[in-house]
Amino acid sequence: MVDYNKPLPNVNQDSKEFWTGCKVHELRFQKCKDCGHIRWPASMICPLCYSRDTQWIVASGKGKVYTFVVYHVAYHPGFKDDVPYVVAVVELEEGPHLLTNIVGCKPDEVRCDMPVEVTWEDITEEFSLPQFRPIS
């Protein structure tokens, strides 16, 4: 953990609640109090109805793989020992699409629409990453 050598999140006012939730292993998203749309990335206003009235909800952590790729090249030295690794867009049950990793299976076992659930990688004292694994 001490010598974690990959990029860390850039936390801002909008994303703070998301990363705080990750630290306690909760996937938190904003839900519009007016139209009910659950959104990601976090933002001040609802992209569908422009309301500013928002509450944070905790997502189930279940979803399916919308699309994915397998990196065979490390574009950052921190990922040198990880290749081949999977980057995916997961469509959560609640709606948001989240860019993440698929772990817990071989890269060639990943499929679009495969059911997945969140699993947490505690990378530093401050941050945990939401990654996803196949639902067995």
């Binding site: 860390l8 490390a74 993440t100 679009c112 990453l129 990654q131």
Partner: peptide, 23 residues
Amino acid sequence: DDAVFGHFGAAAGYALAARRGMH
């Protein structure tokens, strides 16, 4: 925060599109 998950650049972005296309 894409880089946090090891996601960089144009090739991987278009590869995400192409994979969904294959599906």
